[in-house]
């Protein structure tokens, strides 16, 4: 059962890769990167159970947290163009996201 699940996850990783290669917009690639991170989390968990020693399950939990945080960081970067927001209110002096950024 775990072997079949692992094979399915590997195929899903390949599909996420295709979306990351093809694009075409920025959000497609962000989504592909995020879903690829999720697939990695599941794959690491499955590899533990496949080998009969799920000791590294906490590693995949940490990966899930990291994946979430880095997606937030990427999206925040595109919204505010910087990692630190001024306290005057969101986007008071930061340029808004523009349509020309989406290719």
């Amino acid at each position: 059962m775990f072997a079949v699940a692992t094979a399915a996850i590997l195929v899903a990783m390949l599909l996420a890769l295709v979306r990351a290669f093809a694009g075409p917009t920025l959000y497609d690639r962000v989504l592909a990167g995020n879903s690829f991170g999720t697939k990695t989390v599941i794959l690491i968990g499955l590899m533990g159970y496949l080998a009969g020693r799920p000791d590294f399950l906490d590693i995949s939990l940490l990966y899930a947290l990291l994946n979430f945080a880095s997606t937030i960081a990427i999206l925040k970067f595109f919204r505010y163009r910087t990692l630190s927001i001024s306290l005057d209110g969101p986007g008071a002096d930061a340029p808004r996201f523009e349509e020309r950024d989406v290719e």
Binding site: A20, V30, A32
Partner: peptide
């Protein structure tokens, strides 16, 4: 396309991290 390259380098790191786990180098 530079943004695609940045995202792909993140995916590359995730892939090699999964490969390291498979080699027991957690």
């Amino acid at each position: 396309h530079l943004f695609a390259i940045v995202m792909l380098s993140g995916i590359y790191s995730l892939l090699s991290a999964a490969f390291f786990v498979s080699l027991d180098a957690v």
